[in-house]
Design a protein around this nucleic acid. Structure first.
Lengths: 219, 219
DNA sequence: CACGTTGTGTGACCACGTCACATGCCTTTC
DNA sequence: GAAAGGCATGTGACGTGGTCACACAACGTG
């Protein structure tokens, strides 16, 4: 039952705060589950224990863009927003893997915020981090070419073997563009010899070339 | 010297917090002054007392995009980010009018955060609000057409007489596009009879048409 | 008035997003 | 193991948007 001691970000909290948190039961969600969607009211502050949750903004025409990914130990800022600002969710969160998380109810959240400096630091820090990454996202979307963003994605998410297991559609939402564009760009990169690609897999062939694309168009 | 009682957002604070804040001297900046620029270290938490400050993200090729505007009583979130996350500024803040503001030094800021629930609420609330508007910005930039964003801008910022005093270059940065695009779009709108435009001024002629453009392309 | 400065208009060109398909590949089902 | 359906991908056409390189026009200052 004591999950707090196994969660890095939370293990450093003061004892009273952890005792309070330990009374909450973790929740399990299956892969593909939608944790919340636009317009839904906020139930509490969410902390991830394991798994991977992606938060997407969804456009009117079906296109969507990845706002940020929530890793274990992190919290979903969307819920903080809702708790503090009172607004409903405007984005959608989906479990990319089976995930375990804790939902801290509204009143417990506020009690902790008032009583525990450590918890405050935790929440604030997470907030600041997300904000930073959102600004980064705006910067990328408005100033970087699709090719540069794609190259960055491939370098970022590919394993040590240089393989990236994603469909073109997934890559498209990850960098906020359309699938067809990914198809053409991958072709171009493959033709240049920097990557190879087949159904569901992209393989890095030339790290340097990709790095040059990333910094090149961002320049 | 007691500025705190004249600042709506702060007047509701507890007495000790206000006493502490009142020991700080307000700062005046002239129009056009740059409050901070990318890479600069964060000196403290900034609260606006009067005037208007715009915060822009600047692209490598000179293009820039308005992240948010700071109005009196609000605070500049960039500084909070820096204080909490430790990162330097990534955006640039410019005074659009002569402005008066208070800089709360790092240690005072943290002391208040620990001692004053009201101050916490203030900071958190401002944070949440900005975050929300940043998400709105991402949504607009990635899903709305330039025409829709331009129409929204014109409706938003034009006075009761329907006049908007901005150069095309200013409009361009406000909605994150290039000046030439504004020129062409304004021509098109003028041709359709929804606005009139001359050097430095745009006049709304048909509110309904503009509204339709806004919701139309956002739909 | 000549001059630089600033705001605007324009054409060409490329990158990107969208639509409408045509393949392929892989799994399920009989 | 062949047929069927779903999913991932390729492709052409077309419109919008961003960039570059200008030409001009409107203002300010000497």
């Amino acid at each position: 039952m004591s999950w707090t001691e196994h969660t890095d970000q939370i293990a450093g909290l003061d004892a009273p705060a952890r005792a309070l948190l330990d009374t909450l039961a973790p929740l399990d969600v299956t892969e593909g589950a939608v944790l919340f969607c636009p317009g839904e009211a906020v139930k509490g502050y969410v902390v991830m224990l394991s798994g991977q949750v992606d938060v997407n903004l969804i456009g009117p025409n079906g296109r969507d863009i990845l706002l940020y990914r929530v890793a274990p130990g992190q919290s979903c800022i969307q819920s903080t927003l809702g708790l503090l600002g009172g607004d409903a969710y405007t984005a959608e969160a989906t479990a990319e893997t089976p995930a375990r998380l804790v939902l801290i109810p509204r009143d417990v959240f506020f009690a902790l915020l008032d009583s525990s400096p450590g918890f405050r630091r935790l929440v604030f820090g997470a907030f600041a981090e997300r904000m930073q990454s959102m600004m980064q996202l705006i910067e990328n979307v408005s100033f970087m070419s699709v090719e540069a963003r794609l190259a960055a994605l491939i370098l970022d998410r590919s394993g040590p073997d240089g393989c990236l297991h994603m469909t073109q559609a997934e890559m498209a939402t990850a960098i906020g563009t359309a699938r067809e564009v990914i198809s053409r760009r991958l072709d171009k990169m493959a033709h240049a010899g920097s990557v190879a690609h087949e159904r569901g897999v992209v393989t890095v062939l030339d790290h340097k070339a990709l790095n040059k694309i990333v910094s090149g168009t961002a320049f």
